[in-house]
């Protein structure tokens, strides 16, 4: 067997090196979309900071040190300290942790909701589609931030609430994109063939529709993570997110810290810069993924 393949195969150098598909995809990203690769690097650093915040952070989240109040950035306190003498670098790391948790779980929930609504609406069509789409229209007339403020005013602030509402809000909005993808997939010949062979609806949906809309789903998920982090920070900034003393990036820019920013401008710089960098990274990675995976969505958004 080995000998036979040696005879027919062309010289080894002519063949592209065989790699794991993940590695190959990564190389393609770096080659074709350098900006996307930078985005990926930022996202990876962000994830590592978030996951290992407890290990990396030199000080505790709420470790107060009255002698070190409002110290400017130094070798000891990389990003300076706040009005209670808490190390900003450590707080930024724990803030990254919160953002990772909220971003990933809310975006996952949103994707599941988008998929469910989008598939039901797009595949079954007819009256259900009409009704659902009017509901989505109505939902999308409300700014995300305002829905969030109103719901938090009713159910109270907290991480679980924020994740749930963000997931629901972005999920309903994103169902449009999934619906579009389902509608265009539904009319393919292979779907009709499967249906005529008597496959159950569930089988058609799971085995044939779902794999064919994975590209927009993946792109939707990646852009949602960025959007969720941005809206959550706005919500925390207004004081309706995860309540203090949790070190959310948005929360660090608001509340009692604001009065000290005039004396200690690094308090205003660090959270905002981190937020911008992370959202930028996720956005450019999302753009690159869209261009590589799903040419139909190019230039949209």
């Amino acid at each position: 067997m080995a000998a036979a393949s040696d005879i027919v195969s062309p010289p080894r150098s002519a063949l592209p090196p065989r790699r794991h598909p993940f590695i190959a995809g990564l190389l393609r990203l770096v080659r074709e979309k350098p900006l996307g690769a930078i985005g990926l690097a930022i996202v990876l650093v962000f994830l590592i900071c978030g996951i290992f915040a407890d290990v990396i952070a030199p000080y505790g989240i709420n470790q107060i040190s009255p002698v070190n109040r409002l110290k400017p950035p130094s070798a000891r306190f990389w990003f300076g300290t706040d009005h209670l003498g808490r190390d900003m670098f450590s707080r930024i790391l724990f803030g990254a942790q919160l953002s990772v948790i909220i971003g990933l779980s809310a975006a996952s929930l949103a994707t599941v909701i988008s998929l469910t609504l989008g598939i039901v609406s797009g595949y079954f069509g007819g009256k259900i589609d009409m009704l659902l789409q009017r509901l989505v229209d109505a939902w999308m007339s409300f700014p995300e931030l305002i829905i969030l403020i109103v719901v938090v005013s009713v159910v109270g602030p907290g991480m679980v609430q924020v994740i749930f509402i963000l997931g629901l809000t972005f999920g309903i909005g994103g169902s449009r994109i999934i619906r579009g993808a389902v509608v265009s997939t539904r009319e393919n010949m292979y779907i009709h063939a499967t249906q005529s062979m008597g496959a159950s609806t569930l089988r058609v949906l799971l085995a044939h529709i779902l794999p064919n809309i994975m590209a927009p789903v993946l792109v939707l998920f990646s852009t949602r993570v960025g959007a969720v982090i941005l809206v959550e920070s706005g919500l925390s900034f207004l004081g309706f997110g995860v309540p203090p003393p949790a070190p959310t990036w948005g929360g660090m820019l608001s509340g009692s810290g604001r009065t000290y920013m005039y004396m200690a401008p690094w308090l205003a710089l660090a959270p905002g810069l981190c937020l911008t960098l992370v959202v930028y990274g996720i956005n450019v990675l999302g753009d690159a993924l869209r261009d590589l995976l799903d040419p139909r969505m190019r230039g949209s958004r």
Partner: peptide, 10 residues
């Protein structure tokens, strides 16, 4: 693309 990432409140 940068402006898309900068939060207004910041």
């Amino acid at each position: 693309i940068l402006m898309l990432a900068v939060p207004g409140f910041w």
